[in-house]
């Protein structure tokens, strides 16, 4: 994490499709299915007081603003 752009930190990338996320600034979390992805995203967001953003159907990020 901590790739601060305009005060926005992308904390985690949550996806059901590992091909869509490569290593980078943020932790990549692989979910088993959509329900799992929702749960992981929500819990991560609560933990870091961040917000879930949907970039694509199977690719979500959690960002702190």
């Amino acid at each position: 994490m901590n790739r601060s752009q305009n005060g926005v930190d992308i904390v985690a990338v949550i996806t059901t499709n590992p091909d869509r996320a490569q290593g980078g600034g943020a932790t990549v979390l692989i979910a088993r299915d959509r329900a799992d992805m929702e749960q992981i995203a929500f819990r991560t967001a609560k933990l870091v007081k961040g917000m879930v953003h949907e970039l694509a159907e199977d690719l979500w990020i959690v960002a702190v603003h």
Binding site: E38, A41, M51, V52, I61
Partner: peptide, 18 residues
């Protein structure tokens, strides 16, 4: 519009959490 909260045609923010 998908995850995009839109008011009067303006995209305000991306709300990912259903």
């Amino acid at each position: 519009d998908g995850p995009m909260l839109t008011v009067a045609g303006v995209a305000v923010m991306n709300v990912g959490w259903g």
